[in-house]
Nucleic acid binder design. Structure first.
Length: 490
RNA sequence: CGGGAUGUAGCGUAGCCCGGUAUCGCGCCACAUUUGGGAUGUGGAGGCCGCAGGUUCGAAUCCUGCCAUCCCGACCA
C-alpha cells in the first residue's frame, strides 16, 4: 500500500480522497465546495478535451462561447427547467465593492443590479435566447454548437471531481428542423460518449434512457451512459438530452419549414464533465495509487536511471536519449526522471501513485547486459527485456495495458451485475454485493420512488439493449415487459 | 437546512479534565555517507494554539460568543 493512502477495502471514500490528493490531482480551495485542479489532474482533463473535441468536430460540431452570467428572468421561461435548478443557483446581485469607515472591503449597496444575474448551472436558456436570432428558415438548420465552459451548481455536499460547486464541462446545444433529426443527434452523441468511455477511458458503460424521475429538467428524454465503480456504486458518466420543442417554445424560436409553415425548432443538449476524472480514478485504481489507461495518461512511460556516479548517468542518458526519440516518433510520451535528490525507490512509489502505465528502470548492470527492467502499473509485474527493439515492445505493451484495464473493469461489472426477481433478494444484494441489479419494474414513478426511499437504489437507466420479457415488478408484482437497471449511485 | 464532531508549524498529532508561553512524527534547510523498492547520521529553521471577548498575577488549557471545516441525512453531472 502506498504511504498515506488508506486501503480501498477499509474505507472506499477515504481511499478515493487520499488518491486525489496524494497523486497531486487536486486540492481543496479556500472556497467552500470548490477545488483546485492541479497540473497533473488538469493534464488528464486536457487529454480528454482533446479527444472529445476531435470527436465532436468529426461529427460536424463547432465550438462557441456564451456568457457565464445569465439574466434571472431567463430561468422563468421554461417551468420544469427552473424547478430543476432553482435550488442550486449562485446569484450575482451587485457589481461594486467599497472600503468602509473601518477600512473593511464591503459590498457597495448603491451598486445593486436591477436584474440579478445567475452563474450558469447550464446554458440552455441563454443559448436558446440567442438561437432565436440565428434561426429563421430550415436553411439555417441544423445548428451544431458545443461549448467548453465552467458551470456552478450550489450543491449541499461536494466531493473532489465527482461533485464540486464549480466544475468544468462541455455542453453541446443543437437545433434541428425535425424531431427525428434531433433524436438521431441525441443518440449519436450518446454513442460518442460511450465510445470515448470504453475506448479511451477503458471504462465499460451501459447505454440507456433515464426514467421520468431521473430525467433532465426540461427534457423529453434523457439518455445516459452508466458505469460501475469498484465499490459497486453506479456513476452517471455522460448525458444526452432530447429536449423536444420545450426550449424553442420557451424562447420563441420558430423557423419556416420547406412547406412554408412556421414551426418550433427541435433541440438537444449533451455534456460530460470533469467528473469523468473521478470515474477514471474510481474505476481502475488500487491501494498503490492511480491506474491510468495509457491513452489518457499524461505520462505514458517514465524512465528511472539507477546510478552511483556521474559517468554512469551520462552513459545511461545516452541510451535514454535514443529511446525517447524512438518513443516520441511513435507518439508515446516519456519522462526521464534523473533527479539526483530522490532515490530510485522513492521514484518507483511516486510513479505508481500517479498511475504511470509503464516504468523503465535502467542501471549499470543493464547497460552491461544490454537490457532494461520494465514494470507494468496495471499488473505490478516486472520483466527484464533487451534494449534492442524496446520502443516497439513498449508500444505493444501500452496497448496491452489499455486492453487489460478495460477487460478487468468489464469482468468486474459482469460479476457485479445480477438479475433479480424478488424484492427481498434485491435488498439483500444491495447490502451484501452492491452492483447493478437488473429487475422488472411496473413503469410508474411511484414505485421507483418507493424503492428509492426504502433502499436508496435508483433506476440508473432503461438499457437500450435490455431484455424484453414478461415479468412482474419486484415491488408491486404488476406486469412488466422489460428489465431495468438499478443501483445505488454517486 | 436537521444530527454529530473537530480547529495547535506545510501535513498529521500530544498537551486541555487538574492554568505557569507547546510534544512527537512526516515534510523542509545544511553537511556527510548513500542510490536495483519509499536511505542514514549530525546539526538547524519553522507557532498570534481558528477569531473576539471574559475570569486570572498568568490562558492552548476555564467561561461566553462568533467563524470555519469535516462526517451522517434530504439535493445532485
Amino acid at each position: 500500500m502506498s504511504k498515506g493512502v488508506v486501503s480501498k477495502d477499509e474505507d472506499y471514500s477515504q481511499w478515493y480522497n487520499d488518491l486525489v490528493i496524494k497523486a497531486d490531482m487536486a486540492e481543496y480551495s479556500p472556497v467552500k465546495g470548490c477545488m483546485i485542479i492541479k497540473p497533473y489532474g488538469y493534464s488528464i482533463w486536457e487529454k480528454m478535451q482533446a479527444v472529445l473535441d476531435g470527436m465532436f468536430k468529426e461529427t460536424g460540431h463547432v465550438n462557441a462561447y456564451f456568457p457565464m452570467m445569465i439574466p434571472k428572468s431567463f430561468f422563468s421561461k421554461e417551468a420544469s427547467h427552473v424547478e430543476g435548478f432553482a435550488k442550486e443557483c449562485a446569484v450575482v446581485t451587485h457589481y461594486r465593492l467599497k472600503t468602509d469607515e473601518n477600512g473593511q472591503v464591503v459590498v457597495d449597496e448603491t451598486a445593486k443590479l436591477e436584474e440579478e444575474l445567475i452563474l450558469r448551472p447550464t446554458s440552455e436558456t441563454i443559448i436558446w435566447n440567442t438561437y432565436r436570432g440565428w434561426i429563421q428558415s430550415y436553411r439555417d438548420l441544423p445548428i451544431l454548437v458545443n461549448q467548453w465552459a465552467n458551470v456552478v451548481r450550489w450543491e449541499m455536499r461536494t466531493r473532489l471531481f465527482l461533485r464540486t460547486t464549480e466544475f468544468l464541462w462541455q455542453e453541446g446545444h443543437t437545433a434541428h428542423a425535425t424531431a427525428d433529426e434531433a433524436i438521431a443527434e441525441t443518440e449519436q452523441m450518446l454513442g460518442v460518449y460511450a465510445d470515448f468511455a470504453e475506448n479511451w477511458m477503458a471504462l465499460p458503460v451501459v447505454k440507456g434512457k433515464k426514467t421520468a424521475n431521473e430525467r433532465f429538467a426540461g427534457a423529453l428524454d434523457t439518455y445516459c451512459i452508466e458505469a460501475l465503480m469498484q465499490d459497486g456504486k453506479a456513476l452517471q458518466a455522460g448525458t444526452s438530452h432530447f429536449l423536444g420543442q420545450n426550449f424553442a417554445k420557451a424562447f420563441d424560436v420558430k423557423f419556416t419549414n420547406k412547406e412554408n409553415k412556421l414551426d418550433y425548432v427541435w433541440a438537444t443538449s449533451w455534456g460530460v464533465s470533469t467528473r469523468l476524472i473521478g470515474a477514471l480514478i474510481m474505476a481502475h485504481s488500487d491501494d498503490a495509487g492511480l491506474v491510468l489507461p495509457p491513452k489518457l495518461a499524461p505520462i505514458q512511460v517514465v524512465v528511472v536511471p539507477i546510478y552511483k556516479h556521474e559517468e554512469e548517468l551520462e552513459n545511461i542518458s545516452g541510451f535514454v536519449k535514443e529511446l525517447t526519440r524512438d518513443l516520441k516518433a511513435k507518439n508515446i510520451s516519456v519522462k526521464f526522471d534523473k533527479r539526483d535528490t530522490h532515490r530510485p525507490g522513492a521514484k518507483f512509489a511516486e510513479y505508481e501513485l500517479k498511475g504511470v502505465p509503464l516504468r523503465v528502470a535502467i542501471g549499470s548492470r543493464d547497460m552491461q547486459n544490454g537490457t532494461v527492467e520494465l514494470a507494468r502499473r496495471d499488473t505490478k509485474t516486472k520483466e527484464t527485456v533487451n534494449q534492442e527493439g524496446l520502443a516497439m515492445h513498449i508500444e505493444g505493451l501500452l496497448e496491452e495495458i489499455q486492453n487489460n484495464i478495460y477487460q478487468k473493469a468489464f469482468s468486474f461489472r459482469a460479476e457485479n451485475t445480477t438479475e433479480v426477481d424478488s424484492y427481498d433478494e434485491f435488498k439483500r444484494l444491495l447490502d451484501e454485493q452492491p452492483g447493478f441489479i437488473s429487475a422488472h419494474w411496473d413503469g410508474t414513478s411511484e414505485t421507483e420512488q418507493q424503492i428509492k426511499d426504502e433502499t436508496k437504489a435508483t433506476i440508473r437507466c432503461i438499457p437500450l439493449d435490455n431484455k424484453k420479457e414478461e415479468g412482474k415488478c419486484i415491488l408491486t408484482g404488476k406486469p412488466s415487459t422489460q428489465r431495468v437497471l438499478f443501483a445505488r449511485a454517486y
